[in-house]
Design a protein around this nucleic acid. Structure first.
Lengths: 216, 216, 216, 216
DNA sequence: CATGAATGAGCGTTCATTCAT
DNA sequence: AATGAATGAACGCTCATTCAT
């Protein structure tokens, strides 16, 4: 169940309305992930949800608002997945590795979410959506850069431009769903370790223990 | 700079036709880069070129063929920019750094090319185009992975999955135009050094000389 | 008269939808009959029906499907008109005369139907439609030829190539709407008698009783 | 060489111009016969003639004029083929048979001419062309009807409506190219005899000597 | 005489959206 | 709350025709 009021849009909505919205958003995500943003028309989304296209407009008024809701949904699920659990983080290196493996594992668990997010981010045409995506990404980027800078101040990470590092890392993270599609279904953990290894090494400036070379 | 007949597609074409085709391709690149693939309709491209939309069809028969010509143009300019000049490559580390800095500098010089390429790659709907892009990317990826594996065999690079590394690196490279847009116009070289630093470090497993920390 | 659901295509369709489809098909028939197949665009058909062109696509998805519905409509009306009533057929001569007079009278009653059918048969461009028309015609021709051959076996008809005879007769039948347009509105019955006289005489090889010369 | 002034349109035209016009008309006939009137665009006709589409407009100003020239060409070839030679006609029955066999044999010899004529007659959209076709047909019809009426006055033909008979006969004649396509290439003479048998019998009211039953 | 270049009008179709029910 | 019916705008594309060269 969705926390009412989480994004301010569900205020005053009946239970049935919230359920319908959820159903539509889910169908939209599936459609975008499966057929691409360009082919995710109301007709196709409605088919997937076994409802009429008009009902989408009824609940979301415009397509931009629907896409906005999709981004909310995807973003909130990603956020809660990334929180990392109650265990304290041993080190910045450990924190960095957790961000990356967490992201990969989330992509394994919710590949449609991430594929849809990527589709929207790159193919959306409306200025409003593009702005919104940019803001979302900017926030995530700022947080990541802050974390990296802190690791540098603590002496764990070598000197580099945290903003540039964050940019490269987020780009690689965005590509994860595509990478996973190239690999066997059970290769998620291995790939997560690989990806983490790359950026941890890049951040600390030497081979990290527990990586591939450590295993051999 | 484009020599007529360079790619065999202009063979048998009159000078004026080649010029028009070039103009249309240029307008298409600009439109895609500025407004996104989804909004790059014939009408908008034609507006940018100050011609009639029908003229595009006259020169390119179908939209797929126009996009194909765009990819040719972008690809050939990228190829010639990446050749790297006559100087021999000192080491794999050096080669890796050159790939990255070369790419960034090309993105500085031809930002629309790279933005358009990205747009087409992610938003194009026609199966033919998608296939073509996928093949192109697969080739580039294989070459990069082979280079990385060779560096490992020679002992310069640490152990990692070359394919995964190539994937992360290509993702970061694809994001370069967006990164550059966030920075001052003259920050290209600095950014190139940063990006190269990240992946060189990730590949060799220790801080590289000449990087930010070496400067201080 | 068209009973809803008569041909299985209206199954599951709302009353209003069936009515609209009928209206559109009727407008299409009128447009094709009046302006020719080549000029029967969605815009012109829609004008005749006082609706928007997009509504035609809404109800029929593609133009081929609309033309298919037109052929269904025309064909089913023709079939029911040709059934000939309960009275037993006295002879092959009588059967032949009935086929021809029945056809002429149907052309009098539904001239647009027959004109549209002819237009579609000769001017339609889509392979699917052409195939369908060809099959329909082939069936009708085979039935007619079989009837003629039987009349020959029974000794009522003289020797001739039934297939060639059927071809000539069907050609003359197809021309009936045009012939009627050249004549006064009430000349249908006279013309029917004339046309029947021609082919009955051709089939039996002597003047038939009740023909023009018998009347005088 | 084409007789200048035959149709009043070649007056004052140079030799080369006449040759080009002929070439274009020939290509137009071939295109219409092969692909149907609807697909006989200037581009396709020009391809067949290995010239530029603009040249067609240059020589014929509008498409209607080109179609007009096609009708002239086809009509004049048909006329000269139908003249029947110097031999005197033995009887009206003989004359009728010659008209029909002559037509069939012309369709064998110049199938494209007749197919194109038919395509234009049924699929042409322009009112001017439709009018023109109607006039041409009206003339041929009047001549045929007059011939039939004369045969009746001379007592050779039975009583029937000459106009209706002419209509049916012309319809069957128009269908000849299609009929020939259904038969082996060398069946032309047989089919001609069959068709003549049908209408001769229809006209004189008894089996005609030399017909199928006379052969056995 | 002939063409390549260019265009405006029109095509069937898809789309997000509106509205009466 | 939900829908089927309906539409205007936009799409890629084809066409006959114009025009400078």
């Amino acid at each position: 169940m969705q926390t009412v009021g989480a994004d301010g849009d569900d205020r005053g909505r009946s239970f049935i309305e919230a359920a319908r919205r959820d159903q539509i958003v889910t169908a939209a995500i599936a459609t975008i992930a499966a057929e691409g943003f360009a082919r995710a028309s109301f007709v196709r989304i409605a088919e997937r949800a076994s409802i009429s296209p008009a009902l989408i407009t009824y609940h979301f008024k415009t397509k931009d608002k629907l896409i906005g809701a999709v981004l909310d949904q995807v973003g909130s699920r990603l956020d809660s997945a990334m929180e990392g659990g109650p265990e304290p983080v041993a080190s910045y290196e450990d924190g960095l590795r957790r961000i990356l493996t967490g992201h990969v594992l989330h992509c394994v668990r919710a590949p449609e979410d991430m594929a849809a997010r990527r589709e929207i981010g790159t193919a959306a045409s409306s200025p409003a959506i593009r702005r919104r995506i940019a803001e979302q990404q900017e926030t995530g980027r700022a947080e990541l850069a802050a974390f990296l800078a802190e690791g540098q101040r603590e002496g764990e990470f070598r000197e580099f431009d945290p903003d540039a590092f964050a940019g490269a890392m987020l780009a690689a993270m965005q590509a994860v769903p595509g990478e996973l599609r190239r690999r066997p279904a059970d290769a998620g953990e291995d790939y997560a370790r690989e990806l983490a290894g790359i950026f941890v090494t890049a951040a600390i400036g030497r081979g990290w223990e527990g990586g591939p070379e450590g295993d051999r």
